[in-house]
Amino acid sequence: MNPDASTIAAGAPIEVDLSPVAEGQDIKVFWRGKPIYISHRTKKQIDEARAVNVASLPDPQTDEARVKSGHEQWLVVIGICTHLGCIPIAHEGNYDGFFCPCHGSQYDSSGRIRQGPAPANLPVPPYQFVSDTKIQIG
């Protein structure tokens, strides 16, 4: 009953070119059937994400730990609400991040849970920068 070989093969890493994504924009790509949000964050969004008192968060994690150093403007998260798996909407909610329309969870500009029933932050998928404008997810 576990995934068959073709499903596993189709889940191989993918490369995404970031050059067309302007500051303040985000794109949604699918990897392993899951939507991955790639946000080109503005200075304001980064500052907001870093100004938070980490200890006060429901799932404490620093913004630095959620992005790759040297590429702070890029946030890459799996866009699946950690509550019950709906897809949050980007650029909505009170925290300049994501808002889940199903049960009202709100995530900040670092994809961390700030309000609502979700127990954890939006997970960061495994990825690395192949070049300055290209990442490999997986």
Binding site: M1, D4, T7, G33, L84, G85, C102
Partner: peptide, 29 residues
């Protein structure tokens, strides 16, 4: 299907593998 199968992910330790088993993939498909 997504919401209900995700209920099983709440089970500690084995939850995620149960969900994968239900899905037969990495998401409902």
């Amino acid at each position: 299907a997504t919401v209900i199968t995700n209920l099983f992910s709440a089970i500690p330790y084995v939850g995620e593998s149960i969900v994968t088993l239900l899905w037969g993939g990495y998401s409902v498909g």
